[in-house]
Each structure stands twice: as C-alpha cells, then as structure tokens.
Design a protein around this nucleic acid. Structure first.
Lengths: 130, 130
DNA sequence: AAGCTATTTGCAAATAATTCGCATTTTCTT
DNA sequence: AAGAAAATGCGAATTATTTGCAAATAGCTT
C-alpha cells in the first residue's frame, strides 16, 4: 500500500463536514459541500449517515426549516436563531438555555425530558435591509 | 332558502376544529377530525387553509414532528413538550417562555426577532411505562 | 496474501407529505 | 338574478427522504 490512504470512509467525511461548518446544513447542503472532496458520494449515503449520527447522539437535529431538516454537530444545548428571510441558522452561545425549566416541565407533566430547544425566528441583519 | 344554513364555510370548520382541540394536530389529523361534520372536505383544502391561517397569524406552526407539521390555534408564546414515543404535543402554560432573552438575541446578532419557541422533548408519562 | 463475512455505498425506485392546476361550486356584490 | 371573485375537490406534480438490492469496501482468520 504505497499509495496515499485516500480511501478512508465517506462516513467520516460527512461528520467532519458537519463539524467544520456553522451553517447547520441540511442533507443536501452536506452533499454539496462534499462534492469537491468526494464527487462520487451519494445523497442516500449522506441521509443514511446523518440518521445514524443522530441516533448515536453525535449530532442533533434542529427540526426542519422550510421543509428541510437541518443538523448541528454541536450537541450541547444552545439557543438558535433562524431567519425566515434566507433560512440561515445561527448559534447564540452567549444566551443561557432555560434548562432550569426542565424540572418544572417534568413535574407538571410527569414526563421525562431529554432535550430542550430554544429557537428565535425573525429576520437576520442582512435580510432586514430587504 | 328555508333549509338550515348548513353551508357555512369549510374554512371556518377548520379553524374551529383547531380551536377546540389541544392535540396540536397536523393537516391530516384536522382532516380526520372533520370527517364526521364534513365528509366531503378535501385534504388540499385543509392544507390551503392552514397555510392561510398561518400567514394571517391566526394559528402558529410548531414545526414538524416526525416529518409532519403540527399546528396550534393558541398564538400566545408558550412552552411545548413533545413526546418522542407517541408524537403527542402538550402545552405547558405554567412555564414562562424566556422572552427576556429576545432582546439579547437581537443585540447579539443585529437581527429582528419575531417569535420565540421553547420546546422540551422526551417521553410522556404514558410512554415511560413503555 | 487469500478467503470469508459483515458493513458501507451508489443507484434507481418507492414513499410520504405537501403543493399545484384546473374545472366546478359557492359566495359576494351589484 | 347576473356576473365577478373566491373557495373547493380532484388528481397529478413536486420535493424531501427512505429503501431494496447488487457492487464495492473493510475487517478478520488463517
């Protein structure tokens, strides 16, 4: 095996891609981002691996923005802002997620809370100037 | 026109349906709920009117749960709990949505925040007993 | 390195939720 | 009652996502 170890797994490329961006990409966005490095990757592979990462807790889903699911490799609870103009998603690590309400929710409903998601929506600075 | 004014609009039936339930239904759930009263309603009409109500601010969308969009006729900001076991959605009117963070978000990003959504996910009391 | 098994992938077809076009019906305005 | 505008039903189209399956790849065992 003298040739360069070009053949790592595509799976890792997908995870790295997610970890290197702050764009909270969709499956198709990941697919597009990987085109340079892996022109032969399949969209199905991206979907499959995103589903796997999610079930493994390696990434989290932000739910869907305009009909398409968006992902985040940062699994720590943090606040998001979603622009209804351009569909961009931005982190707000400065803001404290209201985790203290979690126990209240559990007490109110007798449920078991696994995650907390706080999202602001509106227009980003760019989209405000139309 | 002596016969009873049976022919109000289906549009209103859809809105009333949403207002009378706490199930945060999807389009198809609304369609099913209306079958008794309006067996001749079309699913497309439900979709069309939900979109209209949303754009008018008469209802809000909770985003999608397991791939299907869910709606709420209560447009006041309030906290939700979503069960990942049975996909039920429950209000938590007792909990205070962190609206105070809204201004912080705007300051951080220079954005304009229009809405705030806080959602807890986990297992409801029924689903905890498997 | 060869052989064997399990996993991953690409492709194309299938699925599922939602939207759209258009003809018909209903409502509104006069 | 007549005509214009809006709402609806139906079926087809669209779009995101999933799946079946055969080929490719990676891991083991010798």
């Amino acid at each position: 095996m003298e040739a360069a170890a070009k053949q790592f797994k595509k799976r890792n490329a997908i995870l790295q891609c997610l970890r290197q961006t702050h764009a909270h990409p969709s499956a198709e966005m990941v697919y597009d981002l990987l085109q340079q490095e892996h022109p032969d990757i399949s969209l199905a592979t991206v979907y499959r691996n995103l589903a796997r990462f999610k079930s493994q807790g390696l990434i989290q889903s932000l739910g869907t923005v305009n009909g398409v699911e968006r992902f985040d490799a940062d699994t720590r609870p943090h606040v998001h802002f979603i622009c209804t103009g351009c569909d961009c998603v931005v982190d707000l690590p400065q803001l404290e997620p209201p985790l203290s309400l979690r126990k209240d929710a559990e007490d109110c409903l007798g449920c078991q809370v696994d995650a907390c998601q706080l999202t602001f929506t509106g227009l980003c600075s760019r989209c405000q100037g139309q």
